[in-house]
Nucleic acid binder design. Structure first.
Lengths: 216, 216
DNA sequence: ACGCGCTTTATACTAGTGTTTGAAACGGAG
DNA sequence: CTCCGTTTCAAACACTAGTATAAAGCGCGT
């Protein structure tokens, strides 16, 4: 019997990574323990031993991926201190897309998050609080700057969601979007261009939205 | 043995409606034939008889829901002929949100579509061509008007996706969005306000985006 | 009443899934 | 070498899910 600790990776870590891939491809319910363990080169009982059951494996995967992503793309709450709000928004959009489209170790994380958005699991709540709320607050502050004085936090927040919504949409619907517009690409070289578009669109929107009255 | 055709609905139709609900709640793989048939008040073999298998039931559900939605919210390719482009965009966003958040007979359709966006099935392609491409074309035309002359179709199209992305995002991520901003509501009374916001944000964006240069 | 096509039903079958369990294997310390 | 805690393994188990099938039931026309 060969000890399965090749590549200096523990079985536990291999399971986390592999499960992440499988869960992101197939979703929680279509993914099977046998598929995950087969790909990870481990025995099916390893899930029970290391995680207890499938649900806890899933929760551990979410936590693990979020941590890896935060290591690779740290959330810098004070970035761009000397920059104009336009530049800050642009940089923030680029960072956001970098996280979403990132091809790092846990490049499957965004795929998994897309599934979570549509059908949130219990494991998502702490992740949202830790990683997503701070980024949203950051964006809200930038949007407030762009919108000018007398802008309520609520106004800025709903605009911030409009910005986030674009980033998220282009990623999660990229198959359909690509079908509807074959000229739109989502490779690594295309992300800066997409960030450019979203930033410009959003800057133009936030700077001018208050001038657009209610249209009936 | 009681004939199960109460409410003048055929078993087939009841299965379609019920399956739509169950698939939208649970997704294809977590939904079971027994759950669907249990709720529909029919025997599990009815799926085999009327549809052949689970996948064909799913495909039939998608088609059925799309047709119902198109009946309830017809795609009017020429609406707003005499209106200003701002008004047309506003109306189009309202209609789009009406489809997405609609509480009609197939109110579960948008939920199902959210799942399809993230993980498209084979059954989606014809639906996209029939129902989504015409609407996108319509939106692109309006966006071109707003952006002014010398606007390429590609420029307008990517902006159109930015508009669509907001509508889609607010719906599919409403659980998370609601958690991050409890003041944002998504009840029937809130949809007009949301349409208002998205329209204004998008109008401001499209009218001004060309003035926002590349920001590095 | 009978025949016929359609629809529904009860039931069986098979494959697959998550989980458990006891034993073997492993590695490190004394 | 032995002991001990940790890890891995093979195999079993109970249950579920999709699917198929033959027979019964139904409604309509002759």
């Amino acid at each position: 019997m060969e000890r399965a600790d090749q590549d200096n990776q523990t079985t536990r870590e291999r399971l986390l990574m592999t499960a992440g891939e499988v869960f992101s491809e197939l979703g929680f319910h279509h993914a099977t323990i046998r598929e995950i363990c087969g790909r990870a080169g481990s025995n099916v009982a390893a899930v029970n031993y290391h995680f207890g059951d499938k649900e806890r494996l899933y929760a551990a995967v979410l936590e693990y991926a979020d941590q890896c992503t935060n290591e690779e793309h740290p959330i810098d709450v004070d970035f761009g201190a000397g920059l104009a709000p336009e530049q800050r928004l642009h940089e923030l959009v680029r960072r956001l897309l970098g996280r979403i489209f990132g091809a790092g170790r846990t490049g499957w994380y965004a795929r998994l998050m897309a599934r979570e958005l549509v059908d949130p699991s219990e494991a998502l709540a702490p992740v949202v609080e830790r990683s997503y709320r701070p980024q949203l607050q950051q964006l809200v502050a930038i949007v407030q700057d762009l919108m000018g004085d007398e802008t309520s936090e609520e106004e800025a927040r709903v605009c911030a969601f409009s910005v986030v919504g674009q980033c998220v949409f282009f990623h999660l619907a990229r198959t359909i979007v690509g079908r509807l517009d074959p000229q739109l690409r989502f490779g690594p070289e295309d992300i800066d261009r997409l960030a450019d578009h979203i930033a410009r669109f959003s800057i133009a929107a936030t700077k001018n939205v208050k001038r657009e009255g209610y249209v009936s």
